[in-house]
Each structure stands twice: as structure tokens, then as C-alpha cells.
Design a binder for these strands. Structure first.
Lengths: 267, 267
DNA sequence: TATTTCCCGGGAAATA
DNA sequence: TATTTCCCGGGAAATA
């Protein structure tokens, strides 16, 4: 049977014949955090390259990068035997890339609550170690506050997890039961539940930070001004003045109107 | 170093001290399909139970169930050494439960297209073998039809995958570029793009150009002017003059910037 | 630090 | 079979 080899980080390299991958730094950092906490659970799958005298990574390149970042010297690997062809390698990578959900929402909620107790840590610390978001922990734990009968509906998937989280924000068990029943009946979906909850508990003032003012001038004509940050009058008026000067100039030149966009981009 | 053991299916059992899991039949069936196609890529992690004289599954219960369904006699396993405590086991299961995205959207698209060629199969057959949805394959492949420069925006994640799919439904490259630029600029999100596309292709009696000029002034600031019909200079300049007068007036009044939209709508 | 909002990835079911 | 619609899971960033 195959052995698991402990291979030095620097003896491994990505397979050059495989499609180039792009890695998000924060994704690798999150994985590195869980490797620091628990090590590499699943061995990489590697191929021998006799010419280069090194190992090529068949699957697990992001684990390799994260392990390096985490300061590991070696990583566990399985040598892929036989002569896998390109289709096999591609198929394996796609399969590995894909999620497997072994835990139900309630299982996850209970596991996280237990972990917090056992490790005596905060939700955020736990999130970091496990490589999941703090928001996910908040939402999972909220499920445990639901009445038993509602939890049963979640367990049976009659009420989806994200809908159940919205329900958990209702202040009393009876309203929660009522909403859960409506969802199980397919009379309400998540977004409708979220709206019902907001009506009840009062909505939060949300202001988008990206500024945007849309001015409808009538007859279908409108001008919208947008920016990455909140807009102020100085920015708005300077912008309008710029576009006005340019429009007059181009109009006098006899340019066509699309030139307005081009000329402002260039300037 | 640890060995990979080939353990008979019936010598394995779920760890009774671990939280009960619920499994979706269709989830297990999908996994079984990929196991039939490519086998079990990642060994299960198991613990010895001396009392019961069998192995307990630490991680990989759904792979075990799927393997049974797929008719395998044995599965590859790694024996977890040492005395992992409950926190370790729970943490490992949560980590394993979690997604790792090794492939970018464009990488996935290219890998799927290549697999279809190599295996000479339909998208649906491929979906089944890989354990992903047919819809995902349709969407991934659509990305390959985008102009190079738009594909580059997707690769760099300036345009999200699902948004890029909506863009790919626009009938011509110029509209696609325009939408992609708006998304990269954060002027449009996915749902707005989807609506724009529906307006354009749903109404098939092609609505020839609603006039629109988008002026990027730099630093994220932009002004767009749009109308139901084609735009001409007179309309543009009159519109700009109106908004300019109003902006100056409201600015002098000390109003907040959103008043600009309201006051023009009223007038 | 914890919670909530926003919105993207992607599966199931409806549709072509 | 392929594509599109609908909507849930869950991360990032805003908010408390």
C-alpha cells in the first residue's frame, strides 16, 4: 500500500504542465492559520519528475504554499502511482477543489459551541484557527438559541440555515415558531423572513459608503454622479464644471457626443 | 512515517463520541459518482478502537458512505496517531468540512473545457463524474467566450465570476466591455448587470440605443448621463447646466448632497 | 469583539 | 441536453 512520505518543502514544485493557478493571499493566510493550529490533515498528492529530480504537486498546491508561510519544513505527501494522464490529473484537481459538506448546520453549531468551551477561546480566535469567518460562528451559535421544535425543522432541512439565523433574531419563541412554520410551508423565503424581522425589531440605518447621486431630470433623462467614497458638494461641483467645459468645447468642435467620455478619460 | 492502510469497509464505523451527522442522499450519491470515476483521492483519517476491535472514522464519514454505495470493498485510511482529544477531533472535522478553492474561475473554465475535449463527453456526464452541477459547467464555459480583456478582468477578480457570466450573455463584445468596465469601477453589481442584460436581450425588438455617456473623471469619480433616446449635445449641455445651478444653490443652502436628486426630481 | 448588511458562488428546479 | 431563474451558504466589511 502507498506510503505517506514526509517531503521537504523545497523539493516540491507546482506541476508546470497544469493550468496556472492564482492564489488569493488572504485565502492562503487563512489556510496557513489552520495549518499552524492543526497541521496538514490531508497529504498532498505528488508525482516524481526524474529529469528535474524533484516532486511535482498534483493536488494541494495551496496547502503547500500555506505550509511554507506557516514555516513548516516538510509536508506529508502521497505519491500518485501509475501514469496518470492529463484528464486524470485535471479531474482530480477539480474534484479536490470541490466542497464536501459532512456537517449539517446544527452539527456545525454544536461542534463550534463545544470547541469554544473546550478551548476556552473567543469566537474570533476559533474562527482563525479553523479558517472560517467570525460571521459564520455568530450565525451558527444563534441557531442553538432557537426553540427545540424549530431546531428540529433546521436539522431536517425544512428550514434552511441562513433563514433560521434570521428567525433567531426574532425576540420571542412564538414569533420564531410562526416564521419557521411559514418557511417549512414554503409560504416565506429567507429574504421575506429577513424583512419581517427588520419590521419587527427596527431597521438599522444603512448608508452605503460609496457615494452616488442619481438625478432624474424628467423625460427619461438622468445624470448620475458616483465615487468610491462619500460625495461632498465640492467634488460634485468641480466634476460638473469639468464635464460642462468639455461638453461645450466638443460641441463647438462638432465632435460626436461619445467623445465626451473619451476626452475626459484621457485628460 | 504513517502508512496508508487499505481497510475493509465493514471494519470501519463512525465514531460514536462524535456529534451525529446527517447526510443528504443526493450529496452521497454525487460523491459516489466521483468515486466511481476517480476513486477516493484523500484517505480517511481513522482511530483504533481496541475494545470494539474496529476502526473509528475521525474524518471522512461521507467518503466512507459513498464508497460503500459505489461498491468499493476497501478504502484508503491514515491512522491518526497519538491520543487526539475531543477538541482536536472536532477541529479537524470542521476544517475538513471547509472549502478550499485552488482554482480561479478562469482556471476552472479552462480545465472543464479541456476535460470535455479529452474525455469526449457531454457537459452533463462531466458534471456527474466530477460531482458538480451542470449549471456550473455552463457558466464556466461561457466565460471563455468573453473578449480577452474582459477575461483578464475576471482573472484578476476585478469582475466576479457570476457577474462575468451575466456579461457573457450580452450579444456583442462592445456591450460586454462596457458592462465589465462598469463592474470593475464598482458602478454596477451583479444584479444590476443581470437586469441590464435582460433589458437588452429579453426585449429582442432591440431597443436601439438608449443614449448614455459615462465620463470617468479619475479617482473613482464618474458622471453618467443617460436618456431613453440617443443623446445630442443640446440635451447634454442643458442637463448639465440644470444640475449645476441646482448643486450650487443647494450647496449654498447647506443642504446635504442627496437633496440634489430630490430637488431635481421635484422641479 | 460580536453582529449585521451586502452580495457573490454555485446547486436545484424550471425552462428552452 | 443545455441554459436560465431562483435562492441559499457563507465571507468581507460596515456597524454596534
Amino acid at each position: 500500500m502507498d506510503k505517506i512520505l514526509s517531503v521537504a518543502i523545497e523539493e516540491l514544485m507546482p506541476d508546470p504542465t497544469q493550468p496556472r493557478k492564482s492564489f488569493l493571499d488572504e485565502e492562503i493566510e487563512r489556510l496557513a492559520a489552520s495549518i499552524r493550529a492543526r497541521g496538514i490533515l490531508m497529504p498532498l498528492r505528488i508525482l516524481r519528475d526524474e529529469e528535474r529530480r524533484c516532486w511535482l504537486i498534483a493536488t494541494g498546491e495551496s496547502r503547500w504554499r500555506a505550509a511554507r508561510l506557516a514555516g513548516l519544513k516538510t509536508v506529508p505527501c502521497i505519491v500518485v502511482d501509475g501514469q496518470p494522464d492529463e484528464a486524470d490529473l485535471l479531474a482530480d484537481r477539480v474534484i479536490e477543489n470541490h466542497v464536501r459538506h459532512d456537517l449539517s448546520a446544527m452539527d456545525l453549531a454544536r461542534a463550534l459551541a463545544k470547541l469554544k468551551l473546550l478551548k476556552k477561546c473567543t469566537s474570533q480566535q476559533l474562527a482563525k484557527e479553523l479558517g472560517i469567518s467570525g460571521a459564520a460562528i455568530t450565525r451558527a451559535e444563534a441557531l442553538l438559541s432557537l426553540p427545540e421544535d424549530v431546531q428540529t425543522l433546521v436539522e431536517s432541512r425544512a428550514v434552511p440555515e441562513s433563514t433560521a439565523y434570521e428567525i433567531s433574531r426574532m425576540p420571542d419563541a412564538d414569533s420564531q415558531r410562526e416564521l419557521a412554520a411559514a418557511v417549512a410551508d414554503r409560504r416565506l423565503k429567507r429574504d421575506a423572513v429577513a424583512n419581517a424581522v427588520r419590521d419587527r425589531i427596527g431597521k438599522r440605518a444603512v448608508k452605503p459608503k460609496a457615494g452616488r447621486v442619481v438625478c432624474r431630470l424628467g423625460g427619461g433623462l438622468s445624470i448620475s454622479i458616483s465615487a468610491n467614497d462619500a460625495l461632498d458638494w465640492t467634488t460634485i461641483i468641480e466634476a460638473i464644471d469639468r464635464i460642462r467645459r468639455e461638453a461645450r468645447k466638443l460641441s463647438d468642435n462638432g465632435s460626436e457626443v461619445q467623445a465626451l467620455a473619451r476626452s475626459l478619460r484621457a485628460s
